[in-house]
Design a protein around this nucleic acid. Sequence first.
DNA 1: ATGAAAGCGCTAACAC
DNA 2: GTGTTAGCGCTTTCAT
Lengths: 354, 354
Amino acid sequence: MTGDTTPGGAATSRPASVVTLDDVARRAGVSSATASRALGDHPHVAAATRARVREAAEELDYVASPEATRLAGGPTGRVAVLVPHPSRWFFGELIEGLEESLRAVDLDLVLFRVGGPEERAAFFARLPARRKVDAVVVLAFAVDEAEHARLASLGVDVVAAGGRVASYPSVGIDDHLAGRQAMDHLIHLGHRRIGMIAVTNDGELAPDPDGRTSAWRAALADAGAEPDDDLVVTVPWGGEGGADGMARLLGLRTPPTAVLAHDDETALGAVRTLRRAGLRVPEDLSVIGIDDHPVAALTDLTTVAQPVRAQGRRAGELVAAALRGELRERVPPAELLPTRLVLRGTTSPPGAPR
Amino acid sequence: MTGDTTPGGAATSRPASVVTLDDVARRAGVSSATASRALGDHPHVAAATRARVREAAEELDYVASPEATRLAGGPTGRVAVLVPHPSRWFFGELIEGLEESLRAVDLDLVLFRVGGPEERAAFFARLPARRKVDAVVVLAFAVDEAEHARLASLGVDVVAAGGRVASYPSVGIDDHLAGRQAMDHLIHLGHRRIGMIAVTNDGELAPDPDGRTSAWRAALADAGAEPDDDLVVTVPWGGEGGADGMARLLGLRTPPTAVLAHDDETALGAVRTLRRAGLRVPEDLSVIGIDDHPVAALTDLTTVAQPVRAQGRRAGELVAAALRGELRERVPPAELLPTRLVLRGTTSPPGAPR
DNA sequence: ATGAAAGCGCTAACAC
DNA sequence: GTGTTAGCGCTTTCAT
């Protein structure tokens, strides 16, 4: 109650009565240098002094100016997160997980969209994160060589989450395995003529950088069925894409009896096309997705679940480790989190009204 | 090519050879003060000088140290965004829109989750955004008095988006009107016994802070039907909640012939319950949601669309305006973006197999 | 163990 | 119009 405590009347905007380190030092009866050491847990500070400083800081509700700290040589306490599409469930979950683990180590998350081609090009050209962060997290997109070089020019640690980026510490799932789990389920049910709806992200990625389509191929081959490339259609990401893809598959001379969609939203689109065509799912045609998006449960979609939020969380931990210098000199192998088949109502044996 | 340009071999992490303002000034043959003015578009700088400085900066690939800028009295160039649930579509869209307009004015978006009660309490207790941002954007949650005071203590502008926060400049929709559009559609179809599935967010908000339930009541009254409170069920947000709510409504002595769900995800849950109960939608019971979530199109759900991304975008513009000092001394009235009925397949006249 | 002093890179008076 | 000179609030040698 030394007069500075209660702001009193001026209810609104008020520069938060900026308390500086000097204020804390003065109150604790030491120099600012000592206060800095005490607060920073440096050695060579008497326990009593440390306590006094801490208390003073507490009482004054002191918060260090991040700018000053940084300018004087400290880290920024921020990490940039590069997100293609923040509004999609998958990215939202990654972000949520990331925020959680970054917050735990007091790191702020600065979001950068790198969605469409132009936006992405703009980001790498201007590099708006430059000089502003201690690390960068790349969410689920493949970084090409030029981009890799640009990121390197930031001079900070880079971590990848949600997908396939070699050369950086990363967390993800085994896409081939996930696809395989879905395919094996269909094959086990008796399907042999299985379609695949692959997606392209922002029109830039090769059809199958992620292994799901290769799983389709491998599973069929292993089951002794010749993979028929006509059964693979590639569409833009999303429900409408899935609907389109399914329509194309239905236009085949011999349509498949089951379909593996790249993800749940694509799968839902496929289901809509089937329903509109008067076909029953799964009696006439089985559909399986990958993700276990919340709507999958609501629409009774069979799928392969992946732990998305956990990937984000783990990525945050990798960032923390990197900042502690633990990942120097050796990119650890990609961490792959487990996926599992979730049986619901959109798959059944072929031609077998259940 | 004055030797500093190409980093050469050291392909990886490398402190980005920090170019300072002095370097630029020296190269342009002026003092750092002049360089600062030139780059900052200040008056009283010869056009030629300005050009020379700009060129030098360009060549050196100069980027100002945000910390130094800030420390010397400038703004941080950052805005904090408080998000309850980043992974939900609604918030993701808001974030995406926000990022877009903030990026346009070169502001970085720093994300803070304020989801569950504890998380939220933690945020307001610690105020991790303190001293780090120029403004705060509150996404779709009601700020109570204590929280309001805490935010005020940050001494920065605050803007709200996606919902009902008086006392701050804000963008949103007219929830009552949206609810009314949905209800009027049902009533127009001939329904009079209409259920309402309201939701509570994080178990903390009152049943109807947003007007959708009041729209239910008003629409029925206007139609000459006595609003029956048994027809209003309140559930936790989400598909499972919706499924539960629908189950409760089905348990009524006289179930409704149509249901207005607080949002599309809740509506989807309701539809699932109906299907599982062997009821047909819309023949046996109509369901309408609010949002126009992408899955609504995939599941043929009738709904009232709201422009979410635009709300985020507009909020970013409000932030920019606030930072230009344009919103001082007067909180502008809440901006309400238009909503519209989207007819799809989950509504039809009562008892009328269409 | 603690203090004094020198910056970190920039902006903002204040002179010229 | 442009240069000089102080800081902004910290961290960190270097002394003591």
